[in-house]
């Protein structure tokens, strides 16, 4: 993929994070992080295990409250908003441990993902709108090539298929901002290629934030990379700058246990 020229895109920040911290007892899992992500950007967040990437995701998505700092999403201050309000603003995320509905079918899971940001969760009757949501669910399944498993129980699928369902669930709500937590982990090389192609083909309207251990996927998809270590942002730059950064090499790329 060639980089889209930045001028053609809105530079208005989709997500702004000011001095955000999250403590667990004495541990600063996330410490004074600033982040600004513009609409349509593809951003990767990298860092060794325990760098605070997933905790940062959790506070941005509202699964965990912040200990300090402020978060603005699509121009709204969401620091104190519950996860469901942020989802309704257009934020969708996936989880490292997939957190799937193991006793539902793939179609029902994707249907729930599509319905979540809409009204009518409590309807005790099925209407035409549900047919629309199911169509959207099937469309999301086609995008990740899991549409042959729509009627299967999620619990009976393989690990790779679980990752596909997780990405499809994030897509099914038609989000404005998509946060994926290690979508490529545990995937075969072929599945990784499919995932990379999918992410590269993603609508430019959607802002994408990616936590990824797989450097190939991350550096091919991302336009900017934020490097975290011990709860702090240590470097931010283009993939080339990150590759060239000596500190990053020492910390992560050159580490003997490169996680790929």
């Amino acid at each position: 993929m060639t980089e889209a020229p930045l001028e053609t895109r809105s530079t208005e920040p989709t997500l702004r994070v000011w001095g955000v911290g999250r403590r667990f007892g004495g541990l600063h899992a996330v410490n004074d992080v600033d982040l600004e992500i513009v609409a349509g950007e593809r951003r990767a967040i990298l860092g060794p295990n325990g760098a605070g990437k997933t905790t940062l995701f959790n506070v941005i998505a509202g699964d965990l409250p912040v200990s300090s700092g402020r978060i603005e999403l699509f121009g709204h201050d969401v620091t104190a908003a519950p996860a469901r309000k942020r989802a309704r603003l257009g934020l969708a995320r996936s989880y490292q441990q997939s957190r799937l509905f193991l006793n539902l079918t793939v179609e029902d899971s994707l249907y729930l993902a599509a319905l979540g940001v809409r009204r009518g969760h409590l309807r005790p009757v099925t209407t035409r709108r549900d047919r629309e949501m199911r169509e959207r669910a099937r469309e999301a399944a086609r995008r990740v090539a899991i549409d042959d498993k729509l009627g299967e129980m999620v619990g009976s699928l393989s690990h790779g298929e679980h990752r596909q369902v997780a990405v499809a669930m994030a897509l099914a709500s038609k989000p404005r901002m998509l946060m994926l937590d290690e979508p490529a982990s545990g995937l075969s090389p072929g599945e990784r290629q499919l995932l990379t192609d999918l992410l590269l083909a993603l609508d430019r309207e959607i802002t994408l934030i990616l936590i990824e251990h797989d450097m190939d996927v991350a550096l091919r998809v991302a336009e900017r990379v934020t490097m975290m270590h011990e709860g702090r942002v240590i470097v931010e730059g283009t993939p080339d700058e990150i590759r060239a950064n000596e500190y990053v090499h020492e910390l992560y790329l050159g580490a003997p246990q490169r996680d790929e």
């Binding site: 998505a61 509202g62 699964d63 519950p82 969708a92 799937l100 729930l112 979540g116 809409r118 669930m169």
Partner: peptide, 8 residues
């Protein structure tokens, strides 16, 4: 948890 992050 997943349900709340889906908007429920």
């Amino acid at each position: 948890v997943r349900m709340s992050s889906l908007g429920y």
